[in-house]
Design a protein around this nucleic acid. Structure first.
Length: 648
RNA sequence: GCUGCUGUAGCUCAGAGGUAGAGCACUCCCUUGGUAAGGGAGAGGUCGAGAGUUCGAUUCUCUCCAGCAGCACCA
């Protein structure tokens, strides 16, 4: 074999025979490294200690001190160890796939009986036994037919299907954890004992479709989390507990913001407190939109099917629409209507009134559009995914040449609003052309380039969602994250070549001929409902002062202060502050606790001293310290705090 | 929509084949208390809905509805 040169992170190089494995390299360096090694990084690629190296390369030997490879291996080996444990307990269970995910892994199984929470305990116990056995991990590359025959003989049809899907040029890699075998691309640890036995936990079982296809077998997926040590696991579990306290459904109850009930699934009963947030946000958005060059319109809720047929919704979206048929006896006309699931067709109707000139473009038409969509029952989630919601929707009618400038303008617009609302960071995703689509490649090129160029010009490199664009055009998604790390699309910008055509929108160009405008569908918040949900979770209920539904509670310490409490409340209200009195016959401790739990940002306590001095004792949410201030001062400073960011 | 789990007082939850309990919240009384729960009394439930088994069902079975987790969906 020809010698090869391996270069280490310290830039020293050593010569080895081609085909040498990192395990041998580690052994060559030192006995202790050989024991501690978990994997290698070869030319930037994560490399199993058993894989041969055939050419000159950069190499680093990883140990448990190297966080990224360590975590990947711990989680990946645990996926295999869990699958082995399951098959040792229930030999007839069929195994499928088990990848590493954020914080842990999952593995999908085909088993007739459901896994119970008690089963999870039994599996965990078995996993620890396997870890304690310190079984060696070994790997071989097999011939494709041999691997298929092997799995057919072992009655593992899912593995056969996986192999059939592996491209012909790729090796079929087999792994063994002790006697237990799995198809896997690797890499893995040296032996099961390298996995920390006290730093993982099985979390839950849920259904998952085989290969993510809802027309296929539903499997049982077991989720686990794992870390490098017990402390990190504990920290993660604590974080989950803390996140649960920020859940908008819980805070919505505690802060008396809204409720939902069986009779109206996926729809929200807003309480006075919640509706205050909603209207504050809407007022703010309305001001921003005016400033941003939008005109505001409003369009009908219940619309004859003819329009939905023309727009294409009847064909493509009907299963998500609430269809309204009036009882024939009462119907004036026997039409079939649908509640609008989107505002776009309505906006085109407004656009189509009167001839438009190229001088009218870009025309930015906004609506706080109430939409109803029959979302699948399993998709509903608090106020974040609902069946009745209001979008801060707008459609920009423009020419192809204006797409880029309008996109840039929109990203600026959205960024400022997100910043005002406390979201300095957000993800941007770019979805390009799907396989089935309308419009020529030429026009797609143009639209995709416009979106990308404008996004990059705004200083953001979007993530790519390949092939996930709508059939009518590419899109940008602006994604925010909830308390437990689930992503929610809020803002969006979508180019649409199709709807103007279908609904015959035109403008007269400088040449005197009719032309088709392009439509940009765009939303900043997405929907008020979802955005408020995110806002609550982001702030753990402690909303910025200007959005807080109850900004100030003035609490009496003694009933002799009642008259002064009323005076303070009135002064605050005159300054535009949402203030209320609490003169109940309760101790100040009780009142402070109750309003703190209710996330009221400022509590003003008044007793004899304050009445005497015409002051208030100020306590801000989350602070133990109080300060005494003259009434006039606090009215002025809270009045300033209450000013929305765009008016400050 | 699919898989699994759950549904008892306004909230958080306990309970059992013989028609229900706690804490908090609520109402009243006592208490006027200085920054996260003062004391006492009282009221409050068709045990998610319907059907079946049973002498008897809130408890067991089935169907439906809703919620939760995940998957699929998300113009």
């Amino acid at each position: 074999m020809a010698p090869i040169s391996l270069t280490f992170p310290d830039d020293n190089a050593r010569d080895y025979e081609a085909g040498i494995t990192p395990a041998q390299v580690a052994a060559d360096i030192s006995k202790s490294l050989s024991k501690k090694a978990i994997s290698a990084t070869v030319n930037g690629q994560h490399w199993d200690l058993q894989w041969p190296i055939d050419a000159d390369a950069q190499i680093a030997i990883n140990t448990m001190q190297d966080e990224a490879p360590a975590l990947e291996l711990i989680r990946h080996d645990l996926a295999h160890i869990m699958a082995r444990a399951v098959q040792e307990i229930w030999p007839d269970v069929k195994v499928t796939i088990g990848p590493v995910i954020d914080n842990g892994w999952y593995y999908d199984f085909d088993r007739a009986e459901p896994f119970t929470p008690e089963d999870l305990g039994a599996i965990e116990k078995k996993m620890r036994e396997i870890i304690n056995k310190r079984d060696p991990v070994t790997t071989e590359v097999w011939d494709r037919d041999r691997a298929i025959k092997y799995y057919e003989a072992n009655n593992e049809p899912y593995k056969v299907e996986l192999i059939e899907a592996i491209p012909g040029s790729d090796p079929i890699r087999m792994y063994w954890h002790g006697h237990w075998q799995d198809l896997c691309r690797g890499p893995h640890l040296q032996h099961t004992g390298q996995v920390p036995a006290d730093a993982f936990k099985l979390m839950s079982v849920a259904g998952a479709y085989w290969r993510g296809d809802s027309s296929r077998q539903m499997l049982q997926r077991i989720y686990g989390v794992a870390f490098q040590n017990k402390e990190a696991l504990r920290a993660h579990l604590t974080m989950l507990e803390e996140a649960a306290k920020r859940d908008h459904r819980k805070l919505g109850r505690e802060m008396d913001l809204f409720h939902m009930q069986e009779e109206a699934p996926g729809q929200i009963f807003w309480h006075p407190n919640g509706w205050t947030i909603y209207t504050q946000l809407q007022d703010y958005m309305r001001r921003q939109q005016r400033r941003g060059g939008y005109v505001e319109v409003n369009t009908p809720q219940v619309v004859d099917r003819r329009l939905w047929e023309a727009s294409g919704h009847w064909e493509k979206y009907q299963e998500h629409m609430f269809i309204v048929e009036v009882d024939e006896e009462h119907a004036r006309e026997k039409s079939v209507n649908a509640l609008k699931p989107m505002n776009c067709p309505g906006h085109v109707q407004v656009y189509n009134q009167g001839l438009k000139s190229y001088r009218d473009l870009p025309l930015r038409m906004a609506e706080f559009g109430s939409c109803n969509r029959y979302e699948p029952s399993g998709a509903l989630h608090g106020i974040m995914r609902v069946r009745g919601f209001t979008q801060d929707d707008a459609h920009i009618f423009c020419t192809e040449d204006q797409i880029e400038a309008e996109t840039a303008r929109f990203i600026d617009f959205l960024s400022e609003i997100y910043r005002d609302l406390g979201f300095a960071e957000f993800k941007v995703l770019f979805s390009d052309r799907p396989e089935t689509r309308a419009g020529s490649d030429e026009i797609w090129d143009k639209a995709e380039n416009a979106l990308l160029t404008a996004t990059r010009a705004a200083g953001t490199e979007p993530g790519l969602n390949p092939g996930e664009g709508a059939f009518y055009g590419p899109k940008l998604e602006f994604v925010l994250t909830d308390a437990i790390g689930r992503d929610w699309q809020c803002g969006t910008l979508q180019v649409d070549f199709v709807l103007p055509e279908r609904l015959d929108a035109t403008y007269i160009g400088a040449d005197g001929d009719k032309h088709r405008p392009v439509m940009l569908h765009r939303a900043v918040l997405g929907s008020f409902e979802r955005f408020i949900g995110i806002l609550i979770e982001e702030h753990a209920g402690k909303l910025p002062f200007w959005l807080a539904p109850r900004q100030v509670v003035v609490a009496s310490i003694t009933s002799e202060a009642d008259a002064y409490v009323a005076e303070v409340v009135e002064a605050l209200q005159k300054a535009g502050i949402r203030a209320e009195a609490d003169i109940r016959n309760e101790k100040i401790n009780y009142k402070v606790r109750e309003h703190s739990v209710g996330k009221v940002p400022v509590i003003l306590a008044v007793g004899h001293r304050e009445v005497e001095d015409r002051t208030v004792s100020v306590r801000r949410l989350g602070e133990k310290q109080t300060s005494v201030q003259p009434l006039a001062d606090i009215v002025a400073s809270l009045g300033a705090d209450a000013t929305p960011p765009d008016l400050a």
